[in-house]
Amino acid sequence: MLRTQNRSAIGMLAPATGLIGVFVLLPMALTVWLAFQDWSTQTGFETARFIGVDNFLAIFGPGSVGRDFKAALVNTAIYTVLSVLIIVPLSVALGLLVHQKIAPGGIVLRTVLFSTYMVPMIAVALVWSKLYSPTEGPINQMLGWIGIGAQTWLSSPKTALVSLVLLNVWQQVGYFTVLAVAGLTQIPPVLYEAARVDGASAWRQFHAITLPLLGNTLLFSAVIGVINAVQVFEPVALITQGGPVNSTNVLTYHIRRVGIERAQGGLGSAMAVTLMLALIVAITALFAVARSRENRT
């Protein structure tokens, strides 16, 4: 009987797990295998030659390959941290604005915020590349009206990456605001009523009720925010091409450049494996922090 049940369970799970195995696990395993090979992406897998950890030594080494990879890794980390640090708190603030019942316009605000998320990145990139134009861009012209000098935006290695972060925030914050609103609706209003009866200030209510009860939503937002940010590609490919001076050369773009343009499949795979490991570490760390905070409370 038990054996029949097992067979039936396996039979029912097989299609889904089989698809996952073929389309997710197999490519991942192949990438890991290729990371230890010398292989051109233009040739068959049979031409791959095992070279041990040479690809990893190269991408962390002092040569041009290592220098460019490490710079891309740092750029990706900065982009990710800045994006999440800005988007998550901003989405909570905007979520509170949308969720409140005191002033009208919450639904309109939510629609406007979410609309940026629905615009295709190609359109966003084209428009923002013109908005950021240092000499003729509307943003610098508007800053000039209030006495602020022209900013370099995408035209300087000091500001280009941050400019892309701002673009990302503009596009993504609406989506995260919707997540925050969904979290806020789950908090029982009775808790706020009790707090008000006890004389708690608005800040105290936010700190003692809203923030702790939004914990799971914030964790989910942070995880999705990290994954989205690490995968940034379109604005770099469409606007900056990784420049100037590689200041916006993030890992996904760099892996494409190495693995596809230069056909260095082994090196590209080693970079992709490193990115995957870094992502796993980052997400695990986020869960660990969340769990330790949960344990303390």
């Binding site: 590349s129 134009s133 240092p134 000499t135 003729e136 370099t152 995408l154 035209s155 300087s156 490919a237 469409l238 606007i239 900056t240 091409q241 420049g243 100037p244």
Partner: peptide, 23 residues
């Protein structure tokens, strides 16, 4: 001025704009 020198994926961008507009 390197801030006037940026190109985009279509080999246009501020560097072209600045020459075209007489800057």
């Amino acid at each position: 001025d390197p801030a006037m020198a940026t190109a985009d994926a279509n080999t246009t961008g501020p560097f072209l704009d600045n020459f075209v507009s007489g800057k």
